[in-house]
Design a protein around this nucleic acid. Structure first.
Lengths: 146, 146
DNA sequence: GCGTTGTTTTGAATTATTCAAAATAAGATC
DNA sequence: GATCTTATTTTGAATAATTCAAAACAACGC
């Protein structure tokens, strides 16, 4: 195997510290949970973290996620009508397939190479910083179910 | 001028009826407000409608918007961290420029012709129905202010 | 005009998220 | 290694957009 548990933990420590953030137990736990289950909601992350770290508060998770997002460590994705999702795949301009039935989210690489999705045809004077592309559809499981 | 008030009103009636919906005062008022101010929130629409139609409830507006969205008459746009916005420009696969400072939304036509934004490179078995593209940036006003 | 069905009102509940202050712990400094 | 500063977490509550449910009402077809 590539990494022992301790080594993985040291990786997490490095990642958090490199972002200029203090290393704390909630942060390590949230980051690890996020690596194991991308596109997780704050609530789901709290539930993942609680067994190992009883007493962790929802606000701690929100705080961790806010700090990570601010630091560019995680990316926030807001599907309409549900809780926000978080993922640690970041900085690669990837997009999302969203199942409108079950809410499942799948990553998808940028449509045509790298550039097109980042520049609108007419930016109307806006300084464009990023592009969010979401494809709405029905996932394989939900297709079969109907 | 192209249309008198009455003529415009008759257009609205036709639009609503063509969607298979009953024509009611709240629906006419919301649709008219939406045509005059695209990218409006439910609250903003309620405020626009109240002077002409006192006693209109917020739930009426939500109900109208749900019916319109369901019928394909309006499109809902959910910017992260704020109330949902609604617009009646629909069916043309246009996208949005969103100012991350002030929340201003501007329409932008599809990036490269029509097709590219509608098909991901790998749809992972999803039946893709639509694509939402949002460009995040700073609008001209906010650029000048800083 | 009348009845059916869909819409609006009324009133309340829900849910994700944020705010604020006090308690605590991480990391720098001595 | 102890101490201090500052960031983080806990605790407790508030907010805000939206939805739910039942009763009153109004549109449209006959």
């Amino acid at each position: 195997m590539a990494h022992t548990t301790v080594e993985r933990n040291e990786d997490l420590v490095r990642i958090i510290r490199a972002a200029g953030l203090k290393v704390t137990a909630p942060r390590l736990a949230v980051l690890e949970a996020l690596q194991q289950a991308p596109h997780s909601s704050a609530e789901h992350l709290l539930l993942s973290v609680l067994p190992a770290l009883p007493g962790t508060s929802a606000q701690a998770v929100y705080g961790v996620l806010a700090a990570f997002t601010e630091a560019g460590l995680v990316r926030r994705f807001d599907p309409p009508g549900t809780a926000a999702l978080f993922e640690c795949r970041v900085g690669d301009n990837h997009h999302h397939l969203l199942c409108i039935r079950c809410g499942k989210v799948t990553d998808v690489d940028c449509v045509v190479g790298a550039a097109p999705c980042l520049s609108p045809s007419d930016s109307s004077g806006f300084a464009v910083l990023s592009a969010e592309v979401t494809f709405n559809g029905i996932c394989p499981q939900c297709r079969n179910a109907s």
